[in-house]
Simulated assay, not measured.
Amino acid sequence: MTNALAKMLAERDWILADGATGTNLFNMGLASGDAPELWNVDEPDNIRTLYRNAVNAGSDLFLTNTFGGNASRMKLHGAENRVRELNRVGAALGREIADAAGRPVIVAGSVGPTGEIMAPMGSLTHELAVEMFHEQAEGLKEGGADVLWVETISAPEEYKAAAEAAGLAGMPWCGTMSFDTAGRTMMGVTSAAMAQLVTRLNTPPLAFGANCGVGASDLLRTVLGFADAGAALPLIAKGNAGIPKYHDGHIHYDGTPELMAEYAVLARDCGATIIGGCCGTMPEHLRAMRNALETHDRGPRPTLEQITAALGGFSSALDGTEAAGDAPEPRRGRGGGRRRRDA
């Protein structure tokens, strides 16, 4: 298997990733509580449209519709025995669209959290987590994914398990965590701690970074934290399109295409190489981001004041770099692992 993403990273100053998966699929009729991964088989034309819209909007890399495609999460829908099939088909549909693009486009096999709490706090052992991630990885590999894309992880133990699974599958991978608790993940990981974590893995990622979380401002503050920690690997920024608000019976993200264009340029100036959107990011946002990255030269590192002036204020005064005594406690329970990425 050729490492298409490594080649692109070596040749490009920036790479535009995709936007939201959930927001787009809900607009196509996916019902809340249904498993999007089942649409890989049941509604393949919708998944082709999802992928094609990202490519047509300018994405160089898009994620497969397999975020919750592990045995633990698929068990909730009685589909735990279909993990390999659903991941294979999700990647194969992506391969079809990427190969027809007429330019290099990376198919990134999305791998989300298991939804379980890792031992010793919970019952999920390292061995079982590796087994679940490996099963998913093999399906994505069979379908033709170029790279595994581990995302929205909160616990370092789960990140390590996913890295080991990628090694077992012989797949290159990237990995992001979600920082949504005053500059920390739900399980208390800081940007500096994540930067240190990736250097200690036996199977290091091609790139690492942050996705989802609170808003674009917070995410860029985390990216600056990676850079301050001396990150040597390429950085990923995949922020939400603004802040979610409840309006007319549904969740709406208030980020405009203009705001996401500002975010994309600032993300590159903060040090990110792979730049995309997460929840609420639609094709019109991606087109604006692409245009901004193509028409604006790389600038100096932005200050926190410049970030908030362009994108809005931070959700908290803490950024994960404060003294340990000021840190918020990790949130307990299954809530963090069970959140579905909307990207």
Rank of each mutant, 00 (worst) to 15 (best):
W149E: 10
A195D: 12
M74E: 14
K245C: 11
L124V: 14
I275K: 02
T308V: 15
L38V: 10
A4S: 14
T21W: 13
A137M: 06
L318T: 11
F67V: 09
E258H: 10
G58W: 00
F208W: 06
M289V: 08
N46C: 08
G225W: 03
P204D: 00
G335V: 11
E96D: 11
V41N: 04
M177C: 11
I15M: 10
L224W: 01
T295W: 03
A71N: 04
H252I: 15
R221G: 07
L9G: 05
D269V: 04
A227C: 10
M177H: 09
G167P: 00
G167Y: 01
G102V: 06
K75F: 07
R301K: 07
T176N: 03
G29V: 03
H77D: 07
A4W: 08
V107D: 02
Q306T: 03
D254P: 05
G94I: 03
A261I: 05
D297Y: 00
N70P: 04
G109I: 01
G170C: 09
N87M: 07
T281A: 09
A108H: 01
T303G: 06
G299W: 00
K7L: 11
M132C: 08
A10M: 00
R84M: 10
C174M: 15
A166W: 01
A169G: 05
A207C: 04
I117H: 01
K75S: 15
D34V: 03
L224M: 15
G33M: 01
G112Y: 09
F67K: 12
T281H: 07
S178P: 08
A35W: 00
G115C: 12
N53D: 14
L128Q: 15
T190I: 10
R73Y: 09
R331F: 11
N87W: 09
E135A: 14
P302N: 01
G336S: 13
G33C: 05
G335S: 13
A216F: 05
A57C: 06
T199P: 05
I153G: 06
G242E: 00
T176R: 05
T176P: 04
R73F: 10
A6Q: 08
H285L: 03
P205F: 00
T66P: 00
T203E: 11
M260A: 02
P36L: 04
A101W: 02
E284I: 07
E151C: 00
A137Y: 06
T181W: 13
R339E: 13
A6H: 03
G249S: 13
W173R: 04
H296C: 04
D45Y: 01
E142K: 15
N81P: 03
L219F: 00
T49V: 02
G139A: 13
Y263C: 08
G188Y: 05
L206D: 01
S217T: 12
L206A: 07
G175W: 03
A169E: 07
I153Q: 15
L201P: 01
A20P: 05
I97D: 03
G78P: 09
G335K: 12
L318D: 15
M121W: 12
Y159Q: 00
V105I: 13
A210G: 09
D180L: 14
M1N: 10
M171Q: 05
C278E: 06
G209P: 02
R84H: 13
G183R: 09
T273C: 13
E305N: 02
M177P: 01
I274M: 14
F208L: 06
M282A: 14
